[in-house]
């Protein structure tokens, strides 16, 4: 069953297309990669899927809900981790997560056990009561991840989740994504890290200058573009053979 469906999606800023005629699907229990250099349109696609901005043409559905007409249902179905990890600095890690749990409409009695579960999963218990202002990048990323999935959404979108993280923290994030797939979640992973993409993604879409230039499993993309691995194939797709 497809949890994310994007059909002929276009979004302009002024006269310029950030994304043009993009189509792809991502199924339940699948990690779907969105690859592309800076300015390829990955973040715009994520913003359209998360209803922060509306598409100009085409449509997209998340968990069966249209991003234009059912914005609240779409946002309830989604957990989004953005590239820039913004936390409320005067709030503790736990308070940051709890605030979002309440905004997602979780019952008060469900919040504490869910946060405990996520903090254990992400190995973040030690700093749960520390104010965000004193947290390291890795700690902040763990809080941001917990915040984005606190409501246990069926679809998770991670935009550069390992950016700026050390090896151990990156591994925690990768394990989290793998666990999410095991639990039947749909994960859209936007990343520059080709090794992570090749290892984790079941299927991929490669974007370049707002256009879809490749779509399929990592093996299919490597085979069609040529090269030893996904990184080679990506360079060939973006820069030409």
């Amino acid at each position: 069953m497809n949890k994310v469906e994007v059909e002929a999606l276009s979004r302009r800023f002024g006269e310029m297309y950030a994304v043009r005629d993009l189509s792809f699907t991502a199924g339940q229990g699948e990690v779907f990669g969105l690859l592309g250099p800076n300015g390829a349109g990955k973040t715009t696609t994520i913003r359209v899927l998360s209803t922060v901005i509306a598409p100009h043409e085409g449509t997209a559905r998340v968990n069966g809900y249209d991003v234009r007409t059912h914005t609240r249902e779409v946002r309830s179905s989604l957990g989004v981790l953005t590239t820039e990890i913004g936390l409320y600095e005067r709030f503790s890690a736990r308070e940051n997560i709890a605030y979002f749990a309440r905004l997602y409409g979780m019952a008060e009695e469900e919040i504490a056990p869910r946060i405990d579960y996520l903090l254990d999963l992400l190995d973040a218990r030690d700093f749960q009561d520390q104010r965000a202002t004193g947290l390291s990048t890795g700690m902040r990323q763990k809080v941001a991840i917990a915040r984005s999935v606190v409501h246990d959404p069926p679809v998770i979108i991670f935009d550069e989740p390992t950016l700026g993280l050390d090896v151990l923290a990156s591994q925690t994030v990768r394990d989290f994504i793998a666990d999410a797939r095991e639990m039947g979640k749909t994960v859209i992973l936007s990343t520059h890290d080709m090794h992570t993409a090749q290892r984790l993604c079941d299927r991929l879409a490669v974007l370049h200058q707002g256009n879809l230039v490749a779509y399929g499993t990592p093996e299919e993309i490597i085979a069609s573009a040529g090269g030893e691995d996904l990184e080679d194939a990506f360079v060939k797709l973006v820069e030409g053979p």
Binding site: S50, V52, T71, R72, V80, T82, E84, G86, Y88, Y104
Partner: peptide, 14 residues
């Protein structure tokens, strides 16, 4: 500026 607004906009809060 603190980059928390976008995360807020992605919640079901209208």
């Amino acid at each position: 500026e603190r980059k928390t607004l976008e995360a807020l906009l992605m919640t079901p809060a209208s």
